[in-house]
Simulated scan of single mutants.
Amino acid sequence: MKILLTGANGMVGKNILDAAKKHSHQFIAPSSQELNLLDFNSVQNYLEQHQPEMIIHAAGIVGGIQANMAQPVKFLVENMQMGLNILNAARANKVQQFLNLSSSCMYPRDAANPLQEELILKGELEPTNEGYALAKITSTRLCEYIHQEDSSFLYKTIIPCNLYGKYDKFDPKNSHMIPAVIRKISEAKKQELSEIDIWGDGLARREFMYAEDLADFIFYAIDNFSAMPQNLNVGLGTDYTINEYYQAVANVIGFNGKFVHDLSKPVGMKQKLIDDSKLKAFGWQFKTSLEQGISNTYQFYLSEYDHD
């Protein structure tokens, strides 16, 4: 199949392209210079020219709590524009299959865990990343509406839990938790610090999946696309506390100092665990343990960022 992948330069995109080497699909993976998703005409012309049979939409403006709180306009407007442009152009060009990547931050902040796919729009969103969540909800609903109006369009959404892995960002200002912790603990070990601070009490629970596993899922989904549910959580179905993640990273890196909690800092939602019953019924399960994933990610960090 000829598949257009947006966001090929991001962590998810690069992991998908790595995995693609083991499969026979033909991938088109334009840079943002070649395909400007913020400009509808650019998207329309690109699809007319290349005629993909399927689109995987993995592009997005992403970041942790700090980035979301600092730039809510960008997170809402640009993510929404990209989603609307690529979906509307795909439909106009009669692309029959569309796999939309969303996020578990779409779920209501007070929803009962584990989070079921049916909970979208059933309550208030978490304020720290509301703009991003609104954009993701819009694309998810638009996929549903397009399929509703014409069932020959299989436009479906996967909702991954938090991700980490190779090609992650390790910049403390805009990285997600695990890469930020890897960098923080790695630097603390180098500087021989005796303690590290953790935002909040460290008891909030998070579910993090190794990005290579998500790429593995995506190829499973491509092969079984008509059987895949309209909206599908993709994750582990199990979670850990922030404290446990810090400890797991410390174990891999060999840091023996202690952790101190900074209770003045924001922590986001108390828990964000996806319900994986539909995922299991669809026949897929993750492969990489937390320790193995952290170890692989740390090796990647050392090879790319830590050259002293």
Rank of each mutant, 00 (worst) to 15 (best):
A89G: 06
D276E: 07
I86K: 08
F153V: 08
L290D: 00
P72G: 05
L214Q: 11
S303T: 13
G123Y: 05
K190T: 09
E130I: 12
P179R: 03
G123M: 01
A89H: 05
V77G: 00
I28G: 04
L38H: 01
Y298W: 15
Q148R: 09
G7K: 12
K173P: 00
L121I: 08
I159F: 06
K280M: 07
L38D: 03
L273P: 00
A188S: 13
C143F: 03
N45G: 02
N68K: 00
L236R: 13
F208N: 11
L5Q: 09
D306Q: 11
P127M: 06
D110E: 15
T238A: 14
G7R: 09
I253T: 02
R205E: 15
R206Q: 14
G202Y: 06
G63C: 02
L142T: 10
A204E: 14
D18G: 05
I61E: 11
T6R: 11
K280E: 08
V62T: 15
L263M: 14
E149F: 13
V260H: 09
Y164M: 02
A70R: 13
K74L: 10
I55T: 03
E117S: 12
L290Q: 01
A90V: 08
L47Y: 01
V267R: 05
N231A: 12
S277A: 06
N45W: 00
A67D: 10
V234P: 02
S186E: 12
Y210H: 15
M69L: 13
P52E: 03
H176R: 14
A211R: 03
E304K: 15
Q148S: 04
Q97M: 13
D110C: 07
S186I: 02
D171K: 08
P108K: 10
P72N: 03
I198Y: 13
I218E: 10
P72R: 02
P72E: 04
Y305I: 04
Q26A: 13
F40T: 01
A20E: 10
D275W: 00
L290T: 01
Q116N: 14
S24N: 14
V77E: 11
D213F: 11
P160M: 05
P160D: 04
S194C: 07
N243T: 14
L35W: 06
M177D: 03
D201R: 05
C161D: 09
A58Q: 04
Q51A: 12
H25Y: 15
E149T: 07
M82F: 05
K166M: 07
Y240K: 13
N9P: 06
V12Q: 08
L163P: 12
S226F: 06
K74V: 11
A19N: 11
S264K: 10
Q44C: 03
D216Q: 14
Y145M: 09
A211L: 07
Q285V: 08
